[in-house]
Each structure stands twice: as structure tokens, then as C-alpha cells.
């Protein structure tokens, strides 16, 4: 077999002279893009407990109790699709740009707020 210069060797050698492409993660954190869907947060004081987020959720990870004013969210079921955020009429649901961190146990998030009074109750 006749000897040929392996073509990839030039790429490998020039790569040695270039900047590193590794992102040194735990030492240097990259700023997240503003559009990223991360952890789901609910500003419970704004929430009206209408239930549209739990209706639109494809994974059924949100449960709402209208009478008691509780908003229950299961982060281990959530698929971060952003449907609830789009469905929320008062814009109290937001995805932060931080990604969810690993945890040692599955925890639920239970938020309690005051449900808006119905019109009959006001009278």
C-alpha cells in the first residue's frame, strides 16, 4: 500500500493552536439566553386559581384547588413545554432562565394564596 498523508491530521494539528471549545462548566458558568425555558415559578399573590394552566398541561403536573387557593406543582412530572405560561390569563406563571438542579428526592411544590372572591360572596 502506498503511503498517504492522513487528511485529518492537519485539522487536528491546527486545532491545537486554536482556542479551547470546552465550556469549563462548574468553574465558569455560561450566561443563559433570555428565551430559555427553565424552572417554572408562580407568583402566587397574582394567581387567580382559574385552572387554565392545569387544563393545558400535557403531563398533568399542576393541580389547583379553587376553594382553598392552593397551587400544587410536581417538578418531576413537568416537561417544560411552556404551555401553561402561554395559557395563563394574568401572567403570573413564568419560566426562569435557570435550569432545574439535580436533587436527592422528588419534591412537590405547594403554594397557598387567597382565591379571588366570587361576585355573590362580595354582596
Amino acid at each position: 500500500m502506498e503511503y498517504k498523508f492522513p487528511p485529518f491530521l492537519t485539522t487536528v494539528l491546527t486545532n491545537l493552536l486554536k482556542r479551547k471549545s470546552t465550556r469549563p462548566y462548574p468553574y465558569q458558568k455560561r450566561a443563559p439566553y433570555p428565551e430559555v425555558r427553565g424552572i417554572l415559578k408562580n407568583q402566587v399573590e397574582k394567581c387567580i386559581f382559574c385552572g387554565s394552566c392545569s387544563l393545558k398541561c400535557p403531563a398533568n403536573c399542576i393541580e389547583i384547588n379553587k376553594q382553598e387557593g392552593t397551587w400544587q406543582y410536581k417538578p418531576y412530572l413537568c416537561i417544560l413545554c411552556g404551555n401553561c405560561e402561554a395559557a395563563c390569563p394574568v401572567k403570573c406563571l413564568t419560566h426562569t432562565t435557570d435550569f432545574p438542579l439535580p436533587c436527592l428526592e422528588k419534591k412537590e411544590i405547594l403554594l397557598k394564596g387567597t382565591p379571588p372572591k366570587r361576585k355573590q360572596d362580595k354582596k
Partner: peptide, 29 residues
């Protein structure tokens, strides 16, 4: 269901899919 129905799980990494940073964090943990 989840993996923890069959074998005991030590660390859970949520996300669909989790970002590589999160997986790296989990491996370090």
C-alpha cells in the same frame, strides 16, 4: 413508570431533556 419503581435511585435530574450542565452537576454530585 419511573426508574425508581424497579431500582433505588440516588440522584434525580429533572428536565426534558436536562441541559448538559445539569447532567454534569448530577455526575459531580
Amino acid at each position: 413508570g419511573g426508574v425508581d419503581k424497579i431500582i433505588p435511585v440516588d440522584i434525580y435530574i429533572p428536565g426534558c431533556p436536562p441541559k448538559p450542565e445539569a447532567i454534569l452537576e448530577g455526575v459531580l454530585k
